[in-house]
């Protein structure tokens, strides 16, 4: 395994203005190639290694915000608020299929490490596993309540595979995280991160927050959940950026990190290839990334990003990190 870059070594190498909000990013099978799900209902493609980076429309077949993109079986699989998943072959630049995947708004699409499966989550509170090649549904995982305890619709925000591809985790609005056995579709366990969810019962009578993203450590022993801490005035994302780490085996909380520096959501989490640190990115009016030292349970590097960051994608060695968000795409590389 090549040496893991240190948090301090990352430098910004690219900063691209975009006329749209980018909600999701996935890296393709060719170096530098990235795919973006955007607020104009379109999926874009860009070669971030090019001298002059251009964002080219790959397709515009969705009917709403494109909030999840994954790369599997030679296709970009995108999911949107229209409830559909679209497979698009990138080598041949052609539409492969569109699937009416969910009854409600799709929040996230990810591919399994081997690329054989695609998982999607949506506000119908179901996680669906798809055969990446055929587009057929393999499993439907139901374990999140459709309504919050106060009778409002819940939302299913995040999904991720473990590095060995055997487990899957999903997380919802009220902070519930479910761990699944991919092969059987059975629930292996669940943990709760209620600190992510603020229900204001008196002042404003609605909610904000939620567990937005989950990540397994490379050895599969830890599960990190990202979101936002408790919020006083829920008109704004003014809670502290929040990460809670659980042990997978018993679902116990090991560590709660609430940023002393940044307020806003953690929209995306990923462990270092060796598990030594955890990268959390997100934002509110502006954005941030924070590297957390997993063993020492403390932040290692905390820095601003120029935009509220909705997602990032990294190459397996973290040689490139692509942050996407509000009207910008930013590229970081270790020096």
């Amino acid at each position: 395994m090549p040496p893991v870059p240190t948090p301090e070594s990352f430098r910004q190498t690219g900063d691209h203005n975009r006329p749209v909000i980018t909600f999701a990013v996935a890296l393709g099978d060719r170096p530098g190639r990235a795919y973006f799900g955007c607020s104009d209902f379109k999926v874009y493609e860009a070669d971030l290694g090019a001298a002059k980076v251009e964002f080219k429309e790959l397709h515009g077949t969705h009917g709403s915000y494109v909030t999840g993109v994954a790369f599997a079986a030679g296709c970009v699989v995108s999911g949107a608020y229209d409830g559909k998943l679209v497979w698009w072959n990138t080598a041949e630049n052609r539409h492969v299929r569109t699937v009416d995947a969910h009854g409600r708004w799709v929040r996230k699409v990810v591919a399994s490490p081997d690329g054989a499966l695609v998982a999607s989550v949506a506000d119908d509170m179901v996680c669906k596993l798809w055969d990446a090649e055929t587009g057929r549904v393999v499993k439907e995982l139901r374990g999140h309540a459709e309504r919050t305890p106060t009778h409002f619709p819940s939302m299913l925000y995040g999904v991720t595979f473990s590095h060995d591809g055997r487990k899957l985790a999903t997380c919802d609005k009220v902070g519930k995280v479910v761990i699944w056995d991919v092969a059987s579709g059975n629930q292996l366990g669940a943990c709760e991160s209620p600190g992510m969810y603020t229900w204001d019962p008196v002042q404003r009578l609605h909610s904000i927050g939620g567990a937005r993203t989950v990540a397994f450590s490379p050895d599969g022993t830890l599960l990190a959940v990202g979101g936002i801490g408790k919020i006083g005035n829920i008109d704004h994302l003014e809670g502290k950026a929040r990460v809670e780490v659980f042990t997978v085996a018993d679902g116990r909380s090991q560590w709660v990190f609430e940023s002393d520096r940044y307020r806003g959501l953690v929209n995306k989490l990923q462990f270092a290839p060796d598990g030594s640190w955890l990268l959390a990115a997100g934002g509110a009016g502006e954005g941030q990334f924070e590297f957390l030292d997993v063993a020492a349970k403390r932040p290692k590097r905390q820095d601003k990003l120029t935009m509220h960051t909705h997602d990032f994608a990294a190459t397996p060695d973290f040689g490139t990190v692509v942050y996407v968000g509000h009207n910008r795409v930013v590229v970081h590389k270790p020096a």
């Binding site: 708004w105 506000d123 409002f152 619709p153 939302m155 404003r204 609605h206 909610s207 904000i208 829920i234 008109d235 704004h236 994302l237 003014e238 509110a284």
Partner: peptide, 12 residues
């Protein structure tokens, strides 16, 4: 008053 997360507030 959805200055943050307008869509989710309205979705709720």
């Amino acid at each position: 008053d959805s200055h943050g997360q307008n869509f989710e507030t309205h979705q709720e």
